[in-house]
Design a protein around this nucleic acid. Structure first.
Lengths: 193, 193
DNA sequence: ATCGCCGGTAGACACTGTCTACGGACGGAT
DNA sequence: ATCCGTCCGTAGACAGTGTCTACCGGCGAT
């Protein structure tokens, strides 16, 4: 009945997620995950033929979490499309800056199996959603291209902020003002307040 | 007289740069670099006490290369400040998309020694330069914040483009139109043609 | 009761980064 | 000329990693 003691597969991913949050991606050793799960180092091979597939499954949790947070934020935001884009952007940044490890792992393509589906399957719908909102928010622009530029901008801010490079360069301590600058750049000056 | 046969230090970095360009960052093994240099695996330790310091030295070549390209592009561009920012941005993207490995290594902070100076010492001057140009190009804006936003945007485009995520999302095959979108977003619609 | 398979164990292998002991060449002082 | 110390690179050990393979115990189906 209780499936948590069977399903070694899920237990491995659970242990990996916990280890990732606690010590970062470089701690995600196959053998350490097995150790924390209480099985031998050869056991994971039964479910994840290679280390990269286990890491990909762990990253999959992150993508699911991100998608969940995004939809939750969208449901909570009752303003216009511009406000929804802003909520989405803030959610994205908060997710990236939340734990020390998950976001890093999710975009370490050398650690994920090539052509990893989780990214495409949760990023593309989110991207289409963003593009649709942008199409509503700024009717004149090429929505897909603006959405791509904004997505890249958020990704870059997330990464550079994690490294404290942007804090050093701009002197800010909170990413709020920078995020406002980014949104204003891509969506035009704030209109729908 | 010839210093290339002495200076094992430089020979190691040379071999590392070549290996990086040929096979990517995950091939930058301490032992493989030593092998390609023709010395034993313990030899690098004399000059680079740890693996990360050797990788940092290799990345340093990349930062120097980037700075050189940037100044070269700036010297070639005779237009106004906006055209110079555009030239800088294009140079940055071309550098990032050029080799398969160097850009990746340069921003893999887990592979570089913490507080790595090369990044700060070549990024910050370049950033200040960018901020100055932006201050001239768009007099009204907070130059540092706009420069930070643009830098992050370029970084994000570089990364997502490398992963082909942006091609997938926008349908583009060349990053030119997207770059124009990005520049227009941060600098305002093209004026100084 | 017996057989086969599923799921996990245990050991081997090649490889990595780091550490330590060794060796040999070179230069300067006596 | 001899000795000594200081570089600079070698070689081996060690713990740890991912992958592969042989093994084995228990369980269900025949």
């Amino acid at each position: 009945m209780n499936e948590s003691d069977t399903n070694l597969r899920d237990r491995l991913v659970d242990a990996g997620v916990a280890l990732l949050a606690a010590e970062g991606p470089q701690a995600l050793t196959l053998r350490e995950i097995a150790r924390r799960t209480g099985v031998s180092h050869g056991a994971p091979r039964r479910y994840f033929p290679t280390h990269l597939e286990l890491l990909s499954a762990i990253a999959g949790r992150g993508f699911a979490d991100l998608a969940g947070r995004a939809h939750c934020a969208l449901g909570r935001e009752t303003g216009g499309p511009r406000a929804q884009v802003a909520a989405l952007a803030r959610t994205y940044l908060e997710f990236a800056l939340d734990g020390p490890g998950m976001y890093e792992l999710m975009f370490r393509h050398d650690l994920l199996e090539s052509g990893w589906l989780g990214l495409r399957d949760t990023s593309l719908p989110l991207f289409s959603l963003l593009a649709g909102l942008i199409g509503d928010a700024v009717p004149g622009a090429d929505a897909r291209r603006v959405a791509g530029a904004l997505w890249a901008n958020l990704h870059g801010v997330a990464q550079l902020w994690r490294w404290r490079s942007l804090q050093l360069a701009t002197g800010d301590e909170d990413f709020g003002p920078l995020l406002d600058t980014v949104l204003a750049a891509h969506l035009g000056p704030e209109a729908g307040r």
